[in-house]
């Protein structure tokens, strides 16, 4: 029995003026798996994310998201915040935290929808009814859990903007997890991390997949991350899909080797794709 994909992208096309940023792209993300989206700079990866999460409206194409419950959503017709409520939560290539708010407040904002219901649109919250206090305590516990997972408990009460870069990246993932996604979309989570930090990231992402059963869509340039943890890789070049498959296949795909990073010399390209070459 085949499980339906958590996300299917069909014939996705989006143009900016004359530029076709994403061109007739189709792929699927299997539930409980890590699907990586890779490609050279400007290939259109972030644009695909923006379409999935409702920040751009695609010109053509259908984006279907299915929850474990069987409910399915046509993402291209939904507002961004409704997509997040449905269970597709993303992080950003250029970190977007609430810098003036404390770390734990960032995680509380992520649980807004749930808390808002518990507070009966602020009435129960205002009267501090047990119903709300209970939900709030639960939300704080959830925040604590993810802070522990990302090693940020000690910084919990500091302003998010004052954290070092790597910690901000982890906080963004923790925040996305607090929003309760079933599909987590990560836009270059390893960018700017040192090798030790990106090793920690690998472990975090694997545990999100294995312990929490959450599907991950991952954009990443760091091949040591992509090749180690992805279940499937989709390769984009100039908005078009040029290859898709498990890491071992993609790694040796001549089309990918030719196109990826525009490397002429085959050996260097292979080294890069193995995650051995110098990182950009």
């Amino acid at each position: 029995m085949t499980v339906p994909p958590v996300l299917s992208v069909e014939h996705l096309t989006i143009r900016f003026g004359g530029l076709v940023a994403v061109d007739d792209l189709s792929f699927e993300a299997a539930p409980g798996q890590i699907t990586a989206l890779i490609g050279p700079n400007g290939a259109g990866k972030t644009t695909v994310f923006n379409c999935i999460t409702g920040f751009y409206k695609p010109d053509v194409g259908r984006l279907t998201f299915r929850r474990e419950t069987g409910a399915s959503f046509l993402l291209e017709r939904m507002d961004g915040f409704r997509i997040a409520q449905a269970g597709v939560v993303r992080t950003f290539q250029n970190i977007r935290l609430f810098p003036g708010m404390s770390v734990v407040e960032n995680l509380m904002v992520a649980q807004h929808v749930k808390l808002m219901h518990a507070s009966l649109f602020s009435v129960a919250g205002f009267l501090r009814l047990p119903r709300f206090l209970h939900a709030e305590a639960q939300a704080i516990e959830r925040a604590r859990y993810w802070l522990e997972r990302t090693g940020l408990v000690d910084q919990a009460d500091l302003p998010a903007g004052s954290l070092p870069y790597g910690a901000q990246r982890r906080l963004e993932i923790a925040r996305a997890m607090c929003a309760g996604p079933s599909l987590l979309c990560l836009d270059e989570p390893a960018a700017g991390l040192n090798p030790r930090e990106s090793q920690g990231l690998n472990e975090l992402l694997l545990s999100i997949r294995d312990e929490h059963g959450i599907s991950i869509l991952l954009i990443e340039h760091d091949m040591s991350v992509v090749m180690q943890i992805s279940d499937r890789i989709v390769v984009l070049e100039q908005g078009r899909k040029i290859a898709a498959g498990p890491p071992d296949e993609v790694r040796v795909n001549p089309e990918v080797i030719r196109a990826y990073l525009g490397v002429e010399d085959e050996e260097t390209a292979v080294a890069v794709l193995q995650g051995e070459g110098a990182r950009a």
Binding site: T53, F55, F81, A84, F92, F98, V109, H112, M116, R175
Partner: peptide, 17 residues
């Protein structure tokens, strides 16, 4: 908190529902 989050970063707030 949602008010303050919107003030800080509307796009991030939207991406959290």
């Amino acid at each position: 908190r949602a008010w303050e989050a919107l003030r800080e970063d509307e796009i991030a707030a939207r991406s959290l529902g």
